[in-house]
Design a protein around this nucleic acid. Structure first.
Lengths: 204, 204, 204, 204
DNA sequence: AATGAATGAGAGTTCATTCAT
DNA sequence: AATGAATGAACTCTCATTCAT
């Protein structure tokens, strides 16, 4: 009859780190970075503050960790839906559809992104993670618009880089509004399509 | 030649409040809200921390004051350049030109705006000030696009509200980037123009 | 046509001091010494904080001033009702009646007294004022009980000093209770009378 | 002989809380509530101010804690000396004797009680603790006097409630005097006995 | 791997008092 | 006699981090 401590509670280090990151995400969403307290995170995870520091040495490291989980999440998402072989317009619409879903299903994720992007301005570690993510996102649109210009879907005088920035800017800015309405999002997406489509083409 | 006593130490309350707001603006730009310390503000103004609290009772009131100075500054700017009587396209270009100037001359102002808009999400007092300011800005573009649709400058199928949101979103998002390049801004402005202009019109 | 400043506002220095003392009394009653703020006093008087310090140099001096006004008030009261020539029992009952009136009409005065007596423990200036006042009060009863012992009204084995201290203690303690009920006061007064009256005498 | 590690620095939470309460008691006695500073308490305990706040979250909680330690001390004292089965007069004399001892041995305790009772007027948490304590004290005397009236020890016309209030008032008020002399206390106790004893009884 | 206890540094805020006018 | 502005010195409380176990 052995009386060993139950292994239920002890999670692996990686699981603990993930749990910490998850709790941090929730609290950033609720209170922003200004209101983020390591103690609150530990409490939400159900561990001691010292234990939290055992797994994640500093608050900055913790924030960087959160940024990384965001990146991983988006990478996984993007890997799950390959767009190769589809027409530019279909790809564009799929992008809009994806954003729409995120907006409806996990609007908090967007709040979190916004906070991280803001923080990236002053936190090199976060910048390192978020910049490529953002660049990749813009890059997706650059490719779509460039391809669509080639095959006549989009205006021949379109500037793919500018158009991509406009697209991500418009979508991203819509997020930032406190009262993000899905109706306005749909109008913006539709207008963006009209804005870049080739008027003389009958592809649509 | 009058010999009035110089306001060496004692300034009028209004002047002091403005000086405090100005110092706060600088420090918000430098360190963000997270790193904003009332003691730093007082030091920059050259006054005691208690004096600061004499003029502005709390930190929140101070932040609200900063928001108000921003609003006043934009109001004054906007009052200085009436657009009545001009064609929609000219108005649009003037808007772009104004943004361009701000971007070149006072890029900090934009960082500050960004921080305030972010904060507005969790600070009702700031929200109260920034929301109307932002709405007014979007509204300007709504009017321009609506007028331009009427007179055939812009596409007949343009959705002025969506187009206005795209415009402000694209411009605003460009601000938010750490490495705001004027070259990209120009490309974005040019592309926005092409995006909404009436392709069958020869007005341009 | 002379344009002189209206003399309405300027009060004499003494009047101002009294007004300040009065406001201080009210605030001590409301918030106790711990919560007493010179600014609150100035505000209640309707003057600037610097003006207050012009009339009363320090907070301690202000508190001493309050103690003095209390003393003066009690002196005036006591001077208004000379007891000479009356029988000890009548005098005792008159004392009880006076306390009763104060309890009913100006219960705040008692709260104030309590605070001052408490403070006297640590504030020599207040002690100097309150101690004689208290001693005088106890002395009144000592005299009454001593006279009553002589003429057979009170018990022959009464200790006038002890009896006086019991009387003032009982009455004073009753004040200190938050829920000073007049009914209990009456029972206490009646019991005190029975406690000290000569059981073999038929004077009552 | 076991060699356990001495609790040099790290004490158990309960011990620390008690040490903090003890230091607070001393400082309240020395300076009153007005002069009570958390930093002074921490310094006296020999801990950092942050450590103090770790054990007792706020100053108010600290004061409530002090009130509780007082209550516990009195409860323990009262539990140590059961009075059941004794005659009312013996009980009364034992009460007086207990007060006398406290007065001689721990006069500070009485100063502390006084401060707490004063504070109870404006601090609900303290009121909650002190009020039952005081009521219990008065209640003891009510029972003694009621029992003594029944068995003829005390006057048949005694009002036990009034008599109890007079007793506690007289004793309590005696405490409050700055120069509490034991001689006066003895005279007061003796006079109280005479005041309530049945004059026709020969029990004494 | 985990934790209770501890802490230095500093946050915003308060307050009696003073100064220049 | 009065005041707006200023200030030093404190105050309570917080927080990321560390230490001993």
């Amino acid at each position: 009859m052995s009386t060993h401590t139950p292994p239920l509670k002890r999670e692996s280090s990686d699981e603990r780190k993930l749990a910490i990151a998850q709790a941090a995400r929730e609290l950033i969403i609720e209170k922003g970075f200004e209101g983020l307290r390591t103690r609150d995170i530990a409490e939400r995870v159900g561990i001691n503050i010292a234990t939290l520091h055992y797994h994640v040495p500093t608050k900055n490291a913790l924030i960087a960790l959160v940024a990384e989980t965001i990146r991983d999440q988006f990478s996984a998402q993007s890997a799950r839906r390959p767009r190769t072989g589809l027409s530019p317009l279909v790809q564009l619409r799929m992008e809009f559809e994806d954003q729409r879903e995120t907006l409806l299903e996990t609007p908090d994720l967007i709040v979190l992104m916004t906070e991280l992007i803001q923080r990236a301005r002053r936190d090199a570690a976060v910048e390192c993670v978020m910049r490529p993510l953002y660049d990749y996102w813009v890059g997706q649109f650059v490719e779509i618009y460039a391809a669509g210009r080639l095959d006549g879907t989009f205006r021949p005088d379109i500037d793919p880089v500018a158009a991509a920035n406009i697209t991500t800017g418009a979508v991203g800015d819509h997020w930032r509004q406190s009262d993000t309405s899905i109706a306005l999002y749909d109008r913006i997406a539709a207008e963006l399509e009209r804005a870049f489509l080739n008027p003389v083409s009958s592809k649509d």
